[in-house]
């Protein structure tokens, strides 16, 4: 991993030093005053990117469970609710959904006599959470399905209700299999949070765009932007691997 980063940065540096003229690293050169200010400006979007992603992921994890549970119900009606939600949400591209939530939803609220403004921050979070919840629901579904049917039958014979069976028998066992893909899904949210830039959220991508407009150096600035996401995602992947090791190690304890 370290090697990859080193060789990547070496490549960029080499390219920067060449006289081809394509690169102009001065724009984000930390040793110059403007370069340093620019870097600080770009990185200052990190906080909002992380905040949006974390809140959206937290909502998605809860919402996904709420959507997944009816999918295992014995009643057909509940299963249909689950399927319709998953198929419908999963088929909407993120960007149109973002526009719909940000520009459309307030109008619906207004027509209902409610004055609920949706700012870019919450607009992005709502969109990311809903869009992602269809996928988390499917992760829960496969995790729950991987627990043998005998477990819920045994729970039934000792008088547990459906919700009790889930709470005390199925989910505690499924969580080992659910958690790693769920954290993996977090990577998706972090990357998709870049779309928040189009509704004016001052996160990483928006900052980069703004700087490009004033500095006219898209190559260097977007390169740095990619590195910023790369670092975020690498940190999360390391978390997933740590989690998988931990979960795997006491599987039979």
């Amino acid at each position: 991993m370290k090697k990859t980063i080193l060789s990547l940065s070496a490549l960029f540096l080499l390219a920067g030093c060449s006289s081809s003229g394509a690169w102009g690293w001065y724009v984000i050169n930390p040793t110059t005053n403007t370069g340093w200010i620019n870097i600080k400006f770009l990185i200052s979007g990190m906080g909002d990117t992380i905040l949006i992603s974390v809140i959206a992921a937290a909502i998605s994890i809860i919402l996904g469970l709420v959507v997944a549970l009816p999918g295992h119900s014995a009643k057909r009606g509940w299963r249909i609710v689950n399927r319709v939600y998953v198929e419908f949400i999963r088929s909407i591209p993120l960007l149109p959904m973002l526009f719909w939530v940000f520009y459309g939803l307030p109008l619906i609220f207004k027509s209902m006599g409610l004055n609920i403004p949706i700012d870019p921050f919450w607009g992005a979070i709502i969109t990311l959470a809903i869009s992602d919840s269809a996928f988390t629901a499917e992760i829960y579904r496969s995790g729950i399905q991987s627990i043998s049917k005998g477990q819920s039958e045994a729970a039934q014979t000792i008088g547990l209700s459906y919700m009790q069976t889930m709470q005390y028998v199925i989910l505690p066992q499924a969580v080992r299999r659910i958690l790693p893909p769920l954290v993996n899904q977090f990577i998706y949210i972090v990357k998709m949070s870049a779309f928040a830039s189009v509704i004016g959220m001052q996160e990483l991508t928006r900052r980069a765009n703004e700087l490009v407009v004033t500095e006219y150096r898209p190559l260097e600035i977007y390169s740095l932007l990619i590195v910023e996401y790369l670092i975020l995602v690498l940190i999360i992947s390391a978390g997933v691997r740590w989690l998988e090791r931990r979960m795997g190690s006491d599987e039979h304890a």
Partner: peptide
């Protein structure tokens, strides 16, 4: 049923966790 009938399975179906 749940009040009156108990069941023992071939595969035990104990809760492993």
């Amino acid at each position: 049923i749940q009040g009156e009938v108990g069941m023992v399975f071939q595969q035990f179906n104990l809760f492993p966790h």
